[in-house]
Design a protein around this nucleic acid. Structure first.
Lengths: 109, 109
DNA sequence: TCAACTATTCAAGTATTATTGAAATGTTAA
DNA sequence: TTAACATTTCAATAATACTTGAATAGTTGA
C-alpha cells in the first residue's frame, strides 16, 4: 500500500510543528476539510507560510485539495494516513496491533 | 501522553530511510530487541552510521537500550509509538479511529 | 593484562529545509 | 472591466541534518 520512500516522505512532512498542527486540525475537521484561509486564521499562520506547508503535505500525499469558488479546500487523506501507520507497524504483534498494546513493555524489566 | 514537541521529534526521527528501517526491524523483533551489531548486519548499515541513528531514535524516545555484556540491545518503545499515533489521530472519528476507516474518502467525491 | 570484540565519538564536507515579505495569479461580484 | 478577495510563487537568508573514516572507549576470555 505504501513503499519505503513514500513512508519517509509522509513522515518527513508530518515532522514539522506547523505541518503537524495543520494535519491534526484537518483530521479533526473530517472529510469536508477546510479552506486555506480558515486554516490560516485558526492556526495563526501567515498565508505564504501556510501555502508552503500545505503544498509540502499535499505533495507527500497526506492532504488533498479542491477549489470551491475563491477558496481552496484541503482535507486529510485518511486512507493514506492509515496506510502509513500500517507500514510502520507491519509484522508487529502478529499483524494485529491494537495500537501496540500487545507489545507494551509496561510490565517487563 | 505526548506533547507537540515530543511528537515532532519522534516523527522527525522516523522520517529517515535508515532510521525507519531500524524501527520497523525492531518492531518486528518484539520486546527482546536486537544488539547493535545484529541490526548492522541485518540492515547493512556501517557501525558509525548505525550508532548515529540509534542515538537519534533513542533521544526521540522511540527506542530504549540496555547493555548485555559486550552488546547493547535496542528495542522499540511500543508505548511511545502508540502514544504518537494517538496524538496524531486525536479527535478523529469520535476518538475511536479503527485506523481511520470511519473517515475513509473512498466513496466520496 | 593483552588481544579481540562491540560499539560510540569526532571533524569535515555536503545537502536539505524553513521563514519572510513582496509580487503575481486566479476568481468573483457589481 | 475593475476592485476586492483568496491563495500561491519567488528570492534571499538562516539553520539543521546526513555520511564517511579514523580514533576512542568499554567489556570479556585466555
Amino acid at each position: 500500500m505504501l513503499n519505503e520512500n513514500q513512508a519517509v516522505n509522509a513522515l518527513g512532512a508530518l515532522a514539522q510543528e506547523t505541518r503537524l498542527k495543520i494535519v491534526r486540525f484537518l483530521i479533526q475537521q473530517g472529510p469536508t476539510g477546510s479552506a486555506a484561509g480558515t486554516i490560516s486564521r485558526n492556526l495563526n499562520v501567515s498565508a505564504s507560510r501556510l501555502s508552503f506547508h500545505l503544498a509540502a503535505l499535499e505533495h507527500a500525499g497526506i492532504l488533498t485539495s479542491k477549489r470551491v469558488s475563491r477558496n481552496i479546500f484541503y482535507r486529510a487523506n485518511y486512507d493514506r494516513l492509515g496506510n502509513l501507520i500500517a507500514y510502520l507497524l507491519e509484522d508487529c504483534c502478529g499483524n494485529n496491533p491494537t495500537i501496540l498494546a500487545c507489545c507494551s513493555t509496561k510490565d517487563k524489566s
